[in-house]
Amino acid sequence: MRMITRLAVAAVAAGGMAAAALAANDSAPADLNDPVSVRQHMMKNVGGSMKLLAGMVKGEAPYDARVAEAAFRAMNNAALGLGAFFPPGSDAGETEASPKIWQDMAGFKAAIGAFARDTAAAAAARPADLDAFKPVFGKVAGNCKSCHEAWRVKKE
């Protein structure tokens, strides 16, 4: 029981650290009535998690398995929710979402699905040390590149 409590405290602490890092990354709150605003907010949070993980890869912070797990879980949450915020008609205005998304929604959802799977696996992997963590990080980071390669249009 003590063990479980300690684990729960550790998890909450790690989650808190991740949340703090994420919060620091958010400049403006999302407009919940605007799917573009919501999905951009979610992507910024994903960026915040990546920053946390990359800092450990780069040696700016010591590797901490709890931080890694919390950040992967935060990304997984975004991956699971993201797909709901690309309704028809949300391809206009201040968005870098590629029109291809609405031409091939199944392909786009498959890409988000891969991101959800990889982040879930990364969180479950609980790599013991930095060397074990690096390939797990690399696999998740590959999702950022491949998805933005196919589904985003740079506007500025």
Binding site: G47, G48, A54, C147, H148, E149
Partner: peptide, 13 residues
């Protein structure tokens, strides 16, 4: 790595 300083990701070509 493909990450900008604010952890946006590289995209496109």
């Amino acid at each position: 790595s493909g990450f900008t300083p604010d952890y946006d990701s590289v995209g496109g070509s």
